[in-house]
Amino acid sequence: MLLNQFLLLGAFLFATGVYGVMARRNSVLVLMSVELMLAAVNINLVAFAAYQNNVAGQVFALFVLTIAAAEVGVGLAIVLLIYRNLRSSDLDDVDVLKG
């Protein structure tokens, strides 16, 4: 197996996730796209771990998983809060930063 096949898969998933973060209106969908990006990163980490025959990559993939879980928890809490305040989970309605 080539290292690159995994890395390219990861790159593709990452770019897809980036697209989703930018193009989706629903905030839950945006969070899912972020998960997609994190999953892509994990594939990279594990692929390098296998390539280097080193356990560190796997350990860091575990850390990424943990932090992804934390991020989803906090992220969904924020989404709920936005929903409660604006009666909408549409990110286009959240534009208080408008200059």
Partner: peptide, 18 residues
């Protein structure tokens, strides 16, 4: 894919957690 790469622990954690 993780299993394919021989990294089974992280694979099962991914299944369980994610």
């Amino acid at each position: 894919q993780f299993i394919l790469l021989g990294q089974e622990f992280v694979a099962w954690v991914q299944v369980l957690v994610y």
